[in-house]
Amino acid sequence: MEELEHKMSAWGESLWSFHLPRWEELPELDLYMDQVITLVDHYLSPVIHSDKHTLLTASMVNNYVKNGMIPPPKKKRYTRKHVAFLIAITLLKQVLTINEVKQGILFQGKMIGIRQAYNLYCEIQEAAIQQVCAQATGHKKRNDQSENDEIQFLAAYSASKAFANKLLAEKVIALQTSYLKEGIENE
């Protein structure tokens, strides 16, 4: 059991300083598809690694363009706006459907703008990852008194929390989608 706890703690420590690039840190130069895919993989590989599939492929990007989730590239070049969308989409699709991701992005973009929404999302995601790191290393945050961090309960607790947070996110997105539709109809 001690070896398992040590490995869990080491994993948590390795992710403690995980950082998503803010809008201003994304490349200013336009990029080609293969460069975008490499860059997104570089940014997200510390938190999403799977032997089963690639994080992002050219066909995924093309589908996101086709479905109106990201703007089409200009002359086969992608901007920092594209990279920001692709980072958020790649992370969010881990727990939400593509349609829910699209609705959430549309809502946030309309409410506070793409740049601010992206930066806020990065802050929120990093805080959530740090909370998980705190659990994995055995350090509780001030607001987490009721959580059981013992290694034998951590998977069940984390899966339950992920499910509950997914339910909440789905409900909020449904309400936001309804709000946007009502706003469009009332215009």
Rank of each mutant, 00 (worst) to 15 (best):
G104Y: 04
G138S: 02
Q130L: 12
V95S: 12
T79W: 15
I151H: 12
K74W: 06
Q135N: 10
K102C: 04
L154K: 15
V83L: 11
A117F: 01
N99W: 14
K140E: 07
P72H: 00
K110H: 07
R142L: 09
R115M: 11
D149E: 08
R80Q: 01
A84K: 00
I124K: 05
I70D: 01
V95P: 03
R77E: 09
K141G: 09
H82M: 02
V101R: 14
P72D: 00
V83G: 07
F153I: 02
T79A: 06
A127R: 09
A88H: 01
K76R: 13
K93R: 15
K110M: 06
P72C: 00
E123N: 12
A88C: 02
I105N: 07
N99A: 10
Q108A: 10
F153E: 06
E150F: 14
I129T: 13
M69I: 00
V101Q: 13
Q125M: 15
I98D: 05
G109T: 00
A155L: 15
I105M: 15
G113E: 05
I98F: 12
I105D: 14
P72W: 00
I70P: 02
I70N: 00
V101T: 12
F153R: 14
Q125N: 11
N67W: 00
E147N: 04
L106W: 01
R77H: 07
Q145L: 01
A159T: 08
H139E: 11
C133V: 10
A128C: 07
L120Y: 15
C122N: 04
L91Q: 12
S160G: 13
I124Q: 14
K140C: 05
V95R: 14
E147W: 04
L96V: 05
Y157M: 10
E126C: 04
I105K: 03
R115N: 05
A127N: 08
M111V: 11
E100G: 10
E100W: 07
F107P: 12
Q108G: 08
P71G: 14
G109Q: 01
V132F: 10
A117V: 00
I70T: 02
